[in-house]
Computed example of a mutant assay.
Amino acid sequence: MHNKVKGLIVTISTSEKGGIRSVVENYYEAGLFDSYESRWIKSHSNSKALIKIVRFLYVLFFVLFYSVRRNTVFHMHMSMNGSFYRKFIYTNIAKFLGSKVILHLHGSEFKTFYLESGKFTKYLIKKLFTQVCVVIALSNTWRDFINRVAPLARVEVINNFCMPVENKMFSKTESVVKFVFLGAVIHRKGIFDLIEAFAMFKSEYRNHNVKLIVCGDGLLTEAVFLAKELGLEEEIEFLGWIDRDKKTQVLNDASAIVLPSYNEGLPMVIVEALSLGKPVITTPVGGIGEIIIDNENGFLVEPGNILQIRQKLREILNGKNTLNVKVSANAAATYKAKFSPGKIVPKVDALYKELLNG
């Protein structure tokens, strides 16, 4: 039985499937909130405009309700666009009523959102970063960006983490090499580049039993059409969005994870792959370049470089008994050193205690 710390922690985040929800779920599973009175308010879902307005008002009510209590800390998880404007309103109400706010920046395209915004929105972004008690950044790269926008903001780098993915043997055939894409099926994630690179790769290795497994939803119709156009109906399997148990199976069965994104914060799937010691082919965008070292604990390609993706697929296939052993061992070591619950949860816990006791 944990002794409760006096005060209330209120998490505000999206309820949609994806990385932000996974982060919050991992916090709960790791026991972060066991010592606190806590609430989780789910602030956004992809639904009709009227439902979005109702949900916004619903969250606004609870921000008001919990703000009048003494010693409340709001932990707000923010991406870009509408998420920014909602968190700006919630933050200002909470601060006006005497609550403290942690702003947790996740938006993979937030830098683009900032650069393409007008002067007034840029002013609001700077104001938000400055007025909260602390901004949590996912990497040093994101910290530096926030500090350029708002030099007076307090920024703490706290990586995403995941609970260790269960290492299980499923009914997989060892002779099948499976490259796995896990994420939204959208252009930003590089899935269409991957499909084209896989087509080039497969034309060279016709006699090898190699498959590409695509997990996620989004532009599935376009992705399936491209696969058919390239004659890959049998070689690419589209699973759609998968639940946690299926994801555990897919990750365990994977020979490598491929995520050739154009923009990222710190993708959960990379952290999950590291926990299993799975080779990752990805791009040095967002916080990824601070984690993955090419040919050491993963493989890096430049965003949009289809030839480089093809080459890394070759290296995985041809080096699975030598290079991949080293990369896998280093990947697992990276997870234990930087992304396990024991490394991350105490940092968030320390912030909560500081703000509740301050």
Rank of each mutant, 00 (worst) to 15 (best):
V214W: 01
E233N: 09
I213T: 01
K172H: 11
L182F: 13
C162D: 06
D243H: 08
W241I: 05
N209I: 04
L182Q: 03
V135C: 15
L105I: 15
V214A: 00
A150M: 11
I125K: 05
P164G: 05
V180F: 01
K211V: 01
W241N: 06
I191N: 00
R143C: 12
I102P: 12
K202P: 08
E204W: 07
T221H: 10
V101W: 11
W142S: 04
L220G: 01
E166K: 15
M163Y: 07
H106V: 13
F145W: 14
A153S: 15
F145K: 09
S171G: 10
E166T: 13
T112S: 12
F181D: 00
E237S: 06
K246S: 05
T112E: 14
E235D: 14
Y123E: 03
E196T: 05
H208P: 00
K211F: 03
H208T: 01
E174I: 08
K122T: 05
Y114M: 05
V132Q: 07
L138H: 11
F120N: 02
L124M: 14
P164T: 05
G183Q: 05
F201W: 04
F225H: 08
K228Q: 11
I191K: 03
L220Q: 04
R244V: 06
L152W: 10
L230P: 06
L182R: 01
N207D: 15
S175P: 03
H104N: 15
K111D: 11
E229N: 14
T130G: 13
V210N: 01
E204N: 13
V177P: 03
S139D: 10
L239Q: 02
L128W: 13
L128N: 09
F113A: 04
F198C: 00
V135L: 10
T221R: 12
K172C: 12
F181R: 00
I158W: 12
I195Q: 02
T173P: 03
K119Q: 08
F145T: 07
D243Q: 02
N167T: 13
S117M: 06
S171H: 08
C133W: 12
I213D: 01
L219F: 10
A153F: 14
K178I: 02
V155P: 13
K189Y: 10
P151A: 04
Q131S: 15
L194E: 00
A184F: 15
I125C: 08
N159E: 09
R206P: 07
V101N: 08
F179E: 00
P151V: 06
M163G: 04
F201N: 01
S175W: 08
E156W: 10
V149E: 09
A184S: 14
L103Q: 10
L128T: 07
D245K: 12
F129H: 06
F170Q: 03
T173L: 09
F198G: 01
T121C: 08
N160V: 11
L230K: 14
V185Q: 04
L232W: 07
T173I: 07
T173G: 02
F170N: 02
F145E: 06
L138Y: 12
C215E: 04
G183T: 04
F161E: 02
F179I: 00
K122P: 11
A197P: 03
F120D: 02
L128D: 06
C133H: 15
G218R: 05
F238T: 01
R143S: 14
L226I: 03
V134I: 15
L103C: 09
T130D: 11
V180P: 02
N147Q: 15
